[in-house]
Each structure stands twice: as structure tokens, then as C-alpha cells.
Amino acid sequence: MRRFLFRNGLSLSFGALFVATLVGQAFAGVADFNDNRVANGLDPISLGRFVTSSNFGADVMENWQSEYLQFFLYIFATVWLIQLGSSESKEAHKRGTESDEEQKVGKYAQADSPAWVKAGGWRTTLYSRSLGFVMLALFLLTWTASAVAGWGAFNNEQLMSHEDPVTFVGYLVHADFWNRTLQNWQSEMLAVGSMAIFSVYLRQRGSPESKPVGTPHKDTGQTG
């Protein structure tokens, strides 16, 4: 068990932090939601009722979708775009999808390469882009979920203020949906851009996200 925890420390720690912060969001969310209800002359709702509301679902999904968009864009953009001096970037001459030899595919596959690499054909082509594709699929799924849950939450608010509910398509072109979406996208783009450029001049000793401390600013890539 200790060996399992040690070997998966990074994923398990963030998984635990995710659960803890989601619980925190539920408690803070119901308190905020009830403040609004009381101000509108309505009875407060329980925590259980709040975490099974479309309002909670929309709040969760609108943040998830932007994270997966960020990773999808970053994974594909870093194949083609470089940032001189960044630990997040490849060196300029490695731009693009690189050779089969560098990527260990085709006749350069190794005995212990993943099965779909050794299989060749469409399976290797698909597997070669699987990380980006899964991030794209998760972005599209979470964005759709955020739209559906946001629609439910929006219509509940419409009914609370005695206004007409909107259709799903109506919600997709409504300012509420785009405000929820874009306020999350903008923060992700800023964070990614900051990471790309800050890692040129700043260091974190021992982190694989940083170049080694003594590496010159002009050196690009993980190895410095």
C-alpha cells in the first residue's frame, strides 16, 4: 500500500485535493445560493438539494471545460509553436511532429513500446495523437455538460423572477452562457501564456516544469 501511494503520489494528491475543494465548493455554493434566495423572499435549501441542482452542475462544468480546452490547445500548439528559452517549448529545429526515429514509431518501435505503436497503420496514427484527442473529447463533453446544466440553472432563475424560460438553442446564444464560458477561457489562456514565458527567466529547483537552475535563459526545452 505504501509503495502504491509513493508511486502515484502526484495523481493521488491532486485527486484528494480535487475532492476536498469540490466539497468546499458545495458548502460555499449553498451558502451563497441561499443568501440570494433569502434576499428574494424564498426559503433556503439544504446542502443535499444544492448538490443535486443544475446550478451546482453548471458551476462545476464551466470550470472543467476550460481546463480541458487549455490542455488540448497547449498539447497541439506546442507541436508547432515555440517559445525561445522556455522549459515548456521544444527547440526551434524540432518544430512539428518529428521523425519516426525521434518518436520511436514504425521500424523504430521498441520491444516494450505500447501495443498500438507496434501495430502500425491507423492504430499508430490514432495513438500518436491520443493525448490531444482525449483532451479535445473531454473539452467538448464538459462544454456540452456546462451548457446543459447552465441552461437548467438559467431557467430556474428565470422562473424565480417570473420570466419565461428559454430553449436550449436560445441559451447557447444567450449572454449568460458566453459569460460563464469566456470568463473561464480568458484565465486559462493567461495562465498558459504566463507559464510559457515565465519559465524562460525563472526557475524552480527540482521541478520538471522548470529548467535546471543554472541553465542560461536562452536555452530552450526541458533539458536546458
Binding site: 495523481s11 453548471a58 455538460a145
Partner: peptide, 30 residues
């Protein structure tokens, strides 16, 4: 690598459950 694969599957299940759960809340109009 068995333990690592278990964590990988756990993440996928957690994410897909979250997506399904939140979509259902919206569809039910809760």
C-alpha cells in the same frame, strides 16, 4: 504498472461520472 493503471482508470471514471451527473442535473431541470 498495475497500480498506475488503476489510478488512470479511476481518473477516467471520475471525470466521466462528473460529466454524466452534471448533464443529468441540467436535463432534469433541477
Amino acid at each position: 504498472m498495475k497500480g498506475v493503471r488503476a489510478v488512470y482508470v479511476l481518473y477516467l471514471v471520475m471525470i466521466l461520472f462528473g460529466i454524466g451527473y452534471c448533464t443529468a442535473l441540467g436535463l432534469l431541470g433541477r
